[in-house]
Write a protein that binds this DNA or RNA. Structure first.
Lengths: 233, 233
DNA sequence: GCGACCATTCGGTACCGGCCGAACAGTGTC
DNA sequence: GACACTGTTCGGCCGGTACCGAATGGTCGC
């Protein structure tokens, strides 16, 4: 019993450093970054970034892929992303008075819509989730689960493959608490597949180089037709 | 954006110390402990424990209640318990070859059944969850949620108050990953109320002074009658 | 009031860990 | 092969912090 206290502490220690925390937050976009990119992003020397990545990989939070002279890292697992999001959601909802026009517009874009590792978040993610609940596709009254109608909708209307929607190790549907909206949105396997389909169909597109996304005109039409959502930008 | 990295790091830093981690794990039993008890439990000087408790309260993980010359602390919130359980679940499932008879029997008792902050866990908690799923009271196929039948069962068969089962800030039903069974069990408001009812009815009783619980004879009969569960000890 | 007891504050010490720069190794390019 | 570039290793510096013991402040029981 006492042993697991030190395990818990070691795990928490991985995120207890500002630079490592910034690295993990950057990787929340679900993509692979090189060590150099992360060093530049966190404004530390490359040697320092190397050491951090070593610890994070050692601790199982990240996985690496060597390719030529590059070292790509990404989050090990959707559950890691979930963990980091959960921790972020606990942070006091402070009034972040970020100064500078670029920061403000970037923040506004993120609030409007973004990816949260592999699913949609921000106002867009919450709007989709709410519309699905309204339509009886999602049940939030007794927890957070897809209904039978919801499963059918994903395969019929959205043309997802049924074998992609089997409950496996990862839960099919999960609520993920949004740190800007303070509301739940759809995560889990279904949330990931839905997000991927939105990208494949050209319904959403990335804004800039970060995690921000916004619906395309075709996407706005699809949201209106499929979920009765209008006025989503 | 860069700002929240330091927030995340500060939050993680609270759990990144072995003594503070041990304190939080001890408080997972849901009860209030005094500063002195925690100091003895973690084998540090009282002055050291005081400093740790100060930081944990400051960081919002714990709340304190002064009463006479005692200072009682407990976890601030069910979501804190959830967070700590989530982190613990990520810890490598190592073969804990704990030596000594007392440690072995204590561990066996914990594996059999225990409370996880405010709901049932261990083999007992998983067995109840599985039986409820089997009976169509709980839906794990599309997520983790109570069915309409499940809600009715809680009020009719278990005589829980309907007003206690309204979806509020805390989700009604949530899956909580067990670190011994590696399986989900019922948590959230419904899990807490169900656990409380089990105690009130004398169906389960604590074993020793820790978190371990086991069903009473009356509890075994109730589990058989209500859920068709037999052979639970 | 006096003595137990719980908790807190305050120096002081020791150690861990983040950071950098410089040197070095591996990889791709001209 | 020379060069540029990415990433790694190593030594050294520095700040933060976990820890303790002794002294102090409250609170309860006699």
């Amino acid at each position: 019993m006492m042993k697991s206290a030190s395990d818990l502490a070691s795990l928490a220690a991985l995120l207890a450093d500002e630079t490592r925390a910034a690295i993990c937050l950057a990787l929340l976009d679900g993509r692979s970054w090189t060590a150099g990119e992360l060093a530049a992003h966190t404004r530390v020397a490359r040697s320092t970034a190397t050491e951090h990545l070593h610890r994070l990989v050692e601790g199982g939070l990240l996985v690496e892929r060597r390719q030529g002279r590059h070292r790509y890292v990404q989050l090990a697992d959707p559950s890691v992303a979930h963990l980091i999001e959960d921790l972020s959601a606990r942070i006091e909802p402070r009034q972040d008075s970020v100064h500078g026009l670029r920061a403000v517009t970037a923040n506004a874009a993120l609030r409007r819509g973004r990816t949260c590792y592999d699913h949609l978040a921000g106002r867009l993610g919450v709007a989709v989730t709410d519309a699905m609940t309204e339509a009886g596709l999602l049940d939030q009254s007794g927890g957070f689960a897809l209904t039978q109608a919801g499963l059918g909708w994903l395969t019929d209307a959205l043309r997802l493959e049924p074998e992609d929607l089997r409950p496996g190790k990862r839960p099919l549907a999960r609520g993920c608490l949004d740190w800007t909206e303070r509301r739940q949105h759809l995560a889990g396997t279904a949330g990931a597949k839905l997000c991927q389909k939105f990208f494949d169909n050209g319904w959403v597109a990335r804004v800039g180089s970060g995690r921000a996304v916004r619906p395309t005109p075709a996407g706005q039409a699809a949201l209106r037709d499929l979920l009765g959502l209008s006025g989503i930008d």
